[in-house]
């Protein structure tokens, strides 16, 4: 029995990473942790793009381009998010997101 690594494995890895990121986002109270979760979710998506680009020749270019976009986007997002976190810290002397409840309805 040969164990060939195929598209499904990559998709499963992406799903696993997505779930890890989502759980991380939902459970962490530390803003940095949440950012990390976000990175994981984004990387899950990137893995999917790259996997599809590899196994489906129709998406060969588009998948890689989107992967690159996501990386760039992630970098930009991280920069902005970190800026928000820094400001939040300046105002609240904490990075606990549960204290940020001004938008409560």
């Amino acid at each position: 029995m040969t164990f060939a690594v195929g598209l499904n494995h990559f998709l499963l890895l992406g799903a696993f990473l997505f779930v890890c990121g989502a759980v991380c986002m939902a459970t962490k109270r530390n803003a940095i942790g949440i950012l990390m979760g976000v990175e994981l979710v984004l990387n899950a998506a990137t893995i999917n793009f790259v996997a599809y680009a590899h196994y489906n020749p129709i998406f060969q270019v588009e998948g890689q381009v989107f992967a690159l976009f996501v990386i760039v986007l992630a970098a930009a997002e991280a920069a902005i998010a970190l800026a928000i976190v820094l400001n939040f810290y300046n105002n609240h002397t904490t990075v606990d997101v549960d204290t940020a409840e001004e938008l409560k309805g």
Partner: peptide, 18 residues
């Protein structure tokens, strides 16, 4: 009634999102 949904907790939003 919808007001109670908007808890202000980031994490619960993420949960809903997910």
């Amino acid at each position: 009634r919808l007001r109670s949904v908007q808890t202000g907790f980031l994490r619960s939003y993420v949960l809903f999102l997910v």
